[in-house]
Write a protein that binds this DNA or RNA. Sequence first.
RNA 1: GGUCUAUUAGUCAAGGGGUCAAGACGCUGCCCUCUCAAGGCAGAAACACGGGUUCAAAUCCCGUAUAGACUACCA
Length: 552
Amino acid sequence: MTEEERKELANLLFPNLEHDRDYYEKLYPKRNLDSNCMVTRYGPSPTGSVHLGNLFSAFCDMVYARQSNGVFYLRIEDTDQKRMIDGGIENITSVLHGFNILPNEGYSFSGEYGPYKQSDRTEIYQTYIKDLIIKGLAYPCFMSEEEQNTIKEEQAINKVKIGIYGHYAVDRDLSLTEIKEKLANGEEYVIRLKSPGNAKNIIEFIDCIKGKIKFPEHDVDTILLKKDKTPTYHLAHAIDDHLMHTTHVIRGDEWVSSLPLHYQLFQILDFKPVKYAHIAPITIKDQETGTIRKISKRKDPWAGVKFYEEGGIPIDALHLYLATIANTNFEEWYLKNQDKKIEDFNFTFEKMAIGGTSFDEAKFNNICKTYFSRKTGEEVFYETLEFAKKYDQDYANLLEENKLDMIKFLSIEKDGERPRKDIAKYSDVKEEFSYAIDTLFEKENYSKLDTDKNYDTNLILGYVNIYLDLNVTNEKWFNDIKDFATHNGYAASPKDFKKNPDNYKGHVGDICEAIRVMITGRRQSPDLFSIMKILGKDKIINRINFYKNFNN
RNA sequence: GGUCUAUUAGUCAAGGGGUCAAGACGCUGCCCUCUCAAGGCAGAAACACGGGUUCAAAUCCCGUAUAGACUACCA
């Protein structure tokens, strides 16, 4: 076909396009950003629910854009109308809000490079395709599905690469007259890439994460525009990421094998190439089959949003986990830098895992505990309150009624070098600190106690009435109680007791245990004296009597 | 079948020719002025296999095995 014929063909196929390629090139000028700023994008397809894997890639997009003062935008990739799900788009945006992974541009977030929904960009794609046809780099293909399936089967039998390429691409060199005839017959067609590649050439790509990858050059006449004139992912990716001036395409590594195609598309479209960073999927060893698979929202509860929301797991703790799997050196850094936040860490592609990463629930739990340990009692209080307001209104009311004391309880042993690390989720607060609120304490009474031991209430009442002074230091308090112990036939320390067990009724720890049991309903608790100070003498005595009555 | 990638303790992983093969989570034991949490110390636990290159290989090369991805008018 001559150039004149190709122009005629292009106009025949796309007679009604308002603009040309140059128009769009000018419409979306280069971004006014420093050269080191990264422009990233999250491009979900609204065809199902968002899971942790999608979120992880969005998290990476956000982190890299943020730390380079760049742009992180949201683009809805909905070119396949057949697979659309009702409410799919709303679900994506609400999940992003829920997980606090917020783009600063894009669909539903405004911006100058829109529309950010691919179904609104059909004309743009067609404009570039028209240009490709004129240049002889794309052509209409009239093959039926049956014909293509036959070829596929034949290729499978002959053990050769599957696809339309070389002599299989029968419509590649159709004459203008032939095409006109087919069009006149009303035959349906797709637009295929007229691939200029040769699979004998090996080309090397640099992936930001995976490093060098070698591939045979792309030589398949891949479909660019579907029968319904909407683009395939490949075309849309090239055009959008060019026009929206993405610098780094961060996406799942299921796309690695499309690299030769995408690279070729950027070349023939005369676009500046983008950098790619293919991230490994979050995997899980399936309990039933023992195989490694991608996480699934259905099988893995922690893969869905609700697990975190309803389970009372702070989103920031999830961010910490995502950060530790995002950069292999993050975890160590975070442990060493008590006062630092995710935002202070410098993420690099080099430190991203190349293979798959298993979701490690035990580690995640530990990270959650670390998260809480670094929060002040007051912060824990308000965050727990927010959670309770959504999922446990009764407890929320109790929290508000007991706010001041509750904050004090939550602050016990929080101020030192080694803050308490006993809470992993908001719902643990109610469990762990039930003794902090009278009504809960009375309701729970001593049901959590795992002992049949009967503690001597008269001994403890005597101690509280005579010895206990709440206005002293912890050290003084402990000396007093040791004093009390020895006067009542108990050893002042467990060591003394162990040396001569027959000389004593028990040791100071037994007395502490008795107090602890009576006032908290459990044998383990944070620092006993701190708890007593917050409760005050009256409540302490009330609770001892409560215990007394309860056991009679 | 073809193409690509990966494989270091139970898990996450560092290390890219010379290391006693880091560290974290989990596990075990001991210590830590009353318990628990935390912390400290100690411990068990790993380079998939077979060849080759080299004075020297977890590291480079080639096979094999295993796993994963792609091989759609899905993204």
